[in-house]
């Protein structure tokens, strides 16, 4: 008897699942397929460093426009290894752009393709006084730094999901910090440092990728 009930239950679940799957399929037909884009060589220089106070303008990026912007429509901003989000309050560092949006960011461990859903809202973080939404320092945020060979590498398997300044979503993965994303950067050539290459998907509506 119990076995029979169990089988019924399985059947029920399968049917429901099929419906759900079908309805999702239908929704996909409506939504245009999201495109994976790669932005190469976003140059994010900084002044100072090596013990001196760090400064310089942050380079602001908009996922909707897929490009560097200079107005308030930015979602994330780069300077050296520091990444800011257009949401929250000023951290308290030099030459910080004003937060004008309500953006937030979260780090997901996984491959880029695996991240299909926007994580729970509670996991998203904003910049705040003395707090980076994207933690800085080797091994804690987006990169590993090897001081022996002076190599900075984006940590494999870290995908960032961004709530944009105007409440849309995007995911991105940093691929390289060196100009033209070489597999083995020449770490003695400072002219190739601080060039971000990342791939991203922008989702103008909805919470799936």
């Amino acid at each position: 008897m119990l076995k029979f009930d169990f089988l019924k239950l399985v059947l029920f679940v399968v049917v429901i699942a099929a419906f759900v799957a079908c309805s999702e399929d239908k929704k996909d037909e409506v939504t245009p397929t999201l495109e994976v884009k790669t932005f190469t060589n976003l140059y994010a220089p900084q002044t100072g460093g090596r013990g001196e106070p760090i400064g310089g303008t942050f380079v602001k990026f908009s996922f909707a426009k897929g490009d560097i912007v200079s107005d308030n429509s930015w979602d994330i901003a780069f300077r050296g290894t520091t990444i800011l989000i257009n949401g929250g309050a000023a951290i308290g560092i030099n030459d910080e752009p004003q937060r004008t949006g309500n953006g937030a960011i979260t780090i997901v461990t996984g491959t880029f393709e695996e991240v299909k859903e926007v994580p729970d809202a509670s996991l998203f973080k904003q910049d705040a006084a003395n707090t980076y939404a994207v933690p800085t320092g080797s091994g804690t945020g987006w990169y590993n730094y090897n001081p022996v060979i002076n190599l900075l590498t984006p940590i494999a398997g870290r995908v960032f999901v961004v709530k944009t300044h105007d409440g849309k979503y995007a995911k991105f993965e940093i691929l390289s910090y060196y100009k033209n994303a070489p597999a083995n950067p020449d770490t003695t050539d400072e002219s190739i440092f601080r060039y971000y290459t990342f791939r991203y998907v922008y989702q103008p509506k909805g919470t799936t990728f």
Partner: peptide, 15 residues
């Protein structure tokens, strides 16, 4: 499943 590496030609992460 928390550790990844990069494909040296595409630079994409894999588990």
């Amino acid at each position: 499943g928390e550790l990844f590496a990069r494909n040296l030609s595409t630079l994409a992460s894999f588990r």
